[in-house]
Design a protein around this nucleic acid. Structure first.
Length: 304
DNA sequence: CACCAGGTACTGT
DNA sequence: ACAGTACATGGT
C-alpha cells in the first residue's frame, strides 16, 4: 500500500463525476477501479491518499490527474461567479487520464444512453472478451484490447443495441491502424486535427470525440456538450451565448465554441465542474442551485 | 404502455 | 452548414 499527501484533490468528486464507469465504492472507504488490465484500490482521508494496484507499473497518480497544477487550472477557468461556485462546491475534482482505447469504447457506448446501462454494457464487454482477474478480494475482467473483439454476435449480446456495429468497426480500425490511433500520435496534432481524426471513427461524433480528447489525451480545452451541459450553459450564459452566436441558433456546436473561447485553455475542466454540478443538484434542487450566498447557478430541467 | 437516457448517422434543403 | 429523423436497449 502506498501513501501520498496531495492538496486540492477529491477522490469522490473525481470518480463520481461521470468520466469513468468502472469503479465501485466498497467498504472501509475504499474505491475499487478497474482500468485496462489493472485493479486499483484507493481511498482518501483528508489530504492523504492510500492506494494499491494489482499492476505495480500502473501509475495511479498520473491516472488520477494528480500531476496537474490545480491552482493554475481553477485560476484559469474561474471567469465568473457561476463557474467559481461550481469549482468551489466540487473543489478537488480532477480530470482523469484514461486509456485511449478503453475511453473511446466506453464513450461510444455512452451515446443516447444512461449511466447505469453504460456501465452494464462495459462490464459485459469486459466479461465477454477480457481476462478474469482478482485483486484485494475483488473479481473482475480486464477491458479487452481492440484485437480481442472479433466476435460480432458475442458483442451484440452485450446490450449495446445499434452501437455494437460502431464499436465493432472502431475496434477493427484500432487493431489494424499502426499507432495512428494512439495517444502519442494524437497529441502531436492540434485540437481540431485530433478531433477530426477521431471523428472518422463510427459512433464518434462531436461530443464523444471531446470526451475522448479530454479524458484520455490531455486536450483540456475540449468542451463536450451533452444535454446537461447544453441546458446548464444556456441557462447560465444565455445572454453571452446569444451575443456570441450573432444570429445563429444556440446549438450544441455554438455552445461548445463559445465555451472553449470563454473558459480558455482548461475549458474541459470547467465543463466537468458544470456537468457534475448539474448532475448532483438535480435531485434536491431540480431547477435552481444555490451555493452559499454568492451564486445562482441555474440548472433548468426543461429542454430548449 | 409511453417516455427517457452523457448522441450519431443519414437524409433533405 | 443546418434542421429533421430513426435508432436498440433497459428502466420507470
Amino acid at each position: 500500500m502506498r501513501e501520498v499527501v496531495v492538496g486540492n484533490f477529491s477522490l469522490k468528486a473525481t470518480l463520481e463525476s461521470g468520466q469513468l464507469f468502472r469503479w465501485h465504492h466498497g467498504s472501509n472507504g475504499f474505491y475499487h477501479i478497474v482500468a485496462g488490465d489493472s485493479i486499483i484500490k484507493v481511498r482518501q482521508s483528508g489530504d492523504k491518499i492510500e492506494y494499491d494496484s494489482s499492476n505495480t507499473k500502473f501509475d495511479v497518480k498520473k491516472f488520477l490527474g494528480l500531476n496537474h497544477s490545480y491552482s493554475k487550472i481553477i485560476g484559469s477557468v474561474s471567469k465568473d461567479k457561476v463557474i467559481a461556485a461550481a469549482v468551489k462546491k466540487h473543489r478537488g475534482l480532477r480530470i482523469l487520464e484514461q486509456d485511449l482505447w478503453e475511453c473511446t469504447a466506453s464513450f461510444i457506448c455512452s451515446s443516447f444512453s444512461n449511466i447505469p446501462r453504460i456501465r452494464q454494457c462495459i462490464e459485459k464487454i469486459a466479461a465477454a472478451f477480457g481476462s478474469r482477474m482478482e485483486f484485494d478480494g475483488i473479481a473482475s475482467s480486464s477491458f479487452p484490447q481492440p484485437q480481442q473483439i472479433t466476435d460480432f454476435s458475442r458483442l451484440k449480446k452485450c446490450g449495446l443495441g445499434y452501437r455494437a456495429e460502431y464499436l465493432f468497426e472502431t475496434a477493427r480500425i484500432f487493431a489494424s491502424s499502426n499507432g495512428e490511433y494512439s495517444k502519442q500520435q494524437l497529441q502531436k496534432l492540434s485540437y481540431e486535427e485530433a478531433k477530426n481524426k477521431i471523428m472518422e471513427l463510427p459512433g464518434v461524433g462531436s461530443k464523444v470525440a471531446d470526451c475522448i480528447l479530454l479524458f484520455s489525451c490531455g486536450f483540456y480545452g475540449a468542451f463536450p456538450v451533452d444535454v446537461w451541459i447544453q441546458r446548464t450553459m444556456v441557462g447560465n450564459y444565455g445572454r453571452e451565448i446569444t451575443s456570441f452566436a450573432a444570429g445563429r441558433k444556440p446549438s450544441e456546436k455554438v455552445v461548445a465554441e463559445f465555451a472553449r473561447g470563454y473558459f480558455g485553455e482548461y475549458a474541459g475542466y470547467a465543463q466537468q465542474f458544470l456537468f457534475h454540478n448539474a448532475r448532483t443538484s438535480r435531485k434536491t434542487l431540480p431547477n435552481k442551485l444555490n451555493i452559499g450566498k454568492v451564486s445562482e447557478l441555474i440548472v433548468p430541467s426543461h429542454k430548449f
